[in-house]
Design a protein around this nucleic acid. Structure first.
Lengths: 190, 190
DNA sequence: GGACAACCGGAGTCGTCAGTCCGTATCGTT
DNA sequence: AACGATACGGACTGACGACTCCGGTTGTCC
């Protein structure tokens, strides 16, 4: 698709880039996207100049973090989907996406608020996951485990919404389990 | 609880205040809470000075808008609850809250991000609605229409989450209906 | 081990936005 | 109609945050 890697980064540059990405993931997730770039740079032990050399824009940093998480989810989803029955795979992946998406909604919003068209890389990763989800959905529906009238848009909206539900609920595992039961039972055919 | 009205506002002041509230509701809902105060003032046909005299802080304006919407929801909920069977009332109010809460999540987040403790008025209105919801939930559970293991926190989280689901889904009424069916079926006992 | 490119740090720039201040206009009352 | 109280408008201020720029440092290759 696009030109692959430019040229290998110098060792220190690669190290800094990775640290920046780690710290940004952590900070954005726990404290929101409003955190100043300077603070992220400091936490990573670099100057702001370094941050902006690697990610020309705060938005670009946000996007890089998102892409990384989406790719991780896609990989786990693929693994899970390969080694289970359709129904089991579907519900397992649903859970997985929810559990992995802590704080991700806010990211998505922040990105969307800044014009989505520019984010080619993100859309790429999104499409991968969406394709996986479409397949899982179709499989589960053929196996009679999910209502047949639901489409991919509804599934995605439900994933986003359930993720929000969980964020509001906090960490209580019993309550989370009850929510999953409500949603999963609702997804099954009447 | 607190001292009621201070002293009747002058006619022009009351008018401006009302216009400000209307415009702010509209603008915050459709374009998010990031819109500059100056623009809200201009749209309402007043200067920023006037805006800040009525609402000493942007946050205070946000809060006033929220309180107003919450009160409207509470009133409609009360009406609906009074004239229906428990189960019907519960599901009707669930729908109502979702339909009325367009864009409200973002408000809540913005307020929360700025320290929640100061927002006494908001918490007041919240409590009213929460009490209504608790009663509706208990009624529906006694009527056997809702799983008995669910508590108020789960219900509230589910409301917030479903509201998010709907926002992602857009306006398609058929799809919205399908989501309601999923969630409502999930809420019913096995 | 030296030389050059690649990379770093962080003080400084620029724009934006919440909130203030005060001279002016409007309301309401006698 | 005239006067005091109340409210208005919008230029101005201060804080903050994204991004730039360049003198100095570090890695890498011969």
């Amino acid at each position: 698709m696009s030109g692959a890697q430019e040229r290998p980064l110098r060792a220190d540059a690669a190290r800094n880039r990775a640290r920046l990405l780690d710290v940004a993931t952590q900070v954005f997730t726990t404290r929101g996207v409003g955190v100043p770039t300077e603070e992220i740079a400091r936490s990573a032990g670099v100057g702001v100049g370094t941050l902006f050399r690697h990610f020309p824009t705060k938005e670009a940093l946000l996007e890089a973090v998102m892409v990384r998480r989406l790719e991780a989810i896609a990989a786990q989803t693929a693994r899970l989907a390969a080694e289970s029955e359709p129904a089991e795979a579907f519900f397992g992946c649903f859970r997985l996406v929810i559990d992995q998406s802590e704080g991700k909604n806010e990211f998505a919003q922040a990105l969307a608020a800044a014009g989505v068209d520019a984010h080619a890389a993100l859309q790429e990763s999104s499409k991968v996951i969406q394709a996986q989800l479409a397949e899982l959905l179709a499989g589960a529906q053929q196996a009679g485990a999910v209502r047949s009238e639901l489409g991919l848009p509804e599934l995605i909206a439900l994933l986003v919404g359930t993720s929000t539900t969980m964020e509001y609920l906090g960490a209580d595992p019993a309550a989370r389990q009850r929510i999953f039961e409500v949603v999963f039972d609702g997804l099954r055919p009447r």
